[in-house]
Simulated assay, not measured.
Amino acid sequence: MSHLLELSGVHTHIGAYHILHGVDLQVPEGEVTMLLGRNGAGKSTTLRTIMGLWAASAGSVRLAGCPIGGPGGHLPTPDIAQRGVAYVPEGMGIFGELTVSENLLLAARSARREADLDPARLEWLFGLFPALHKFWRYPAGKLSGGQKQMLAVARALIEPRALLLVDEPSKGLAPAIVQNLIAAFAELKRQRATLLLVEQNFMMARALGDHVAVMDNGRVVHAGSMAALADDVALQQRLLGLSLGAHQ
Score class of each variant (00 low, 15 high):
Phe95His: 07
Gly96Tyr: 01
Thr99Asp: 06
Thr99Ser: 15
Thr99Cys: 10
Val100Ile: 13
Ser101Glu: 14
Glu102Pro: 03
Asn103Val: 07
Leu104Ser: 10
Leu104Pro: 12
Leu106Tyr: 06
Ala107Cys: 14
Ala108Thr: 07
Ala108Phe: 07
Ala108Met: 03
Ser110Glu: 13
Ala111Met: 07
Ala111Ile: 06
Arg112Asp: 12
Ala115Asn: 04
Asp116Asn: 07
Asp116Pro: 10
Leu117Ile: 11
Leu117Thr: 11
Pro119Ser: 03
Pro119Thr: 02
Ala120Val: 13
Ala120Gln: 15
Leu122Arg: 03
Leu122Gly: 02
Leu122Met: 04
Trp124Thr: 01
Trp124Tyr: 14
Leu128Thr: 02
Pro130Asp: 06
Pro130Asn: 05
Leu132Trp: 10
Lys134Trp: 03
Lys134Pro: 00
Phe135Glu: 10
Trp136Thr: 05
Arg137His: 15
Pro139Gln: 14
Ala140Ile: 08
Leu143Ile: 13
Ser144Gln: 13
Gly145Gln: 10
Gln147Cys: 10
Gln147Glu: 15
Met150Pro: 04
Leu151Tyr: 09
Ala152Tyr: 05
Ala154Ser: 14
Ala154Arg: 10
Arg155Phe: 02
Leu157Ser: 12
Ile158Phe: 06
Ile158Ser: 07
Pro160Arg: 11
Ala162Trp: 00
Ala162Ser: 15
Leu164Val: 14
Leu164Tyr: 02
Leu165Cys: 12
Leu165Tyr: 07
Val166Arg: 02
Asp167Phe: 06
Asp167His: 06
Glu168Ile: 02
Ser170Glu: 04
Lys171Ser: 10
Gly172His: 11
Ala174His: 09
Ile177Pro: 01
Gln179Asp: 15
Asn180Leu: 14
Asn180Val: 14
Leu181Asn: 08
Leu181Met: 12
Leu181Lys: 08
Ile182Val: 15
Ala183Ser: 14
Phe185Thr: 09
Glu187Cys: 03
Glu187Tyr: 00
Glu187Thr: 13
Leu188Glu: 03
Arg190Asp: 02
Gln191Phe: 00
Gln191Ala: 01
Arg192Val: 00
Ala193Gly: 01
Thr194Asp: 09
Leu197Ser: 04
Leu197Met: 15
Val198Ala: 07
Gln200Leu: 06
Gln200Asn: 10
Asn201Glu: 13
Asn201Leu: 06
Asn201Lys: 09
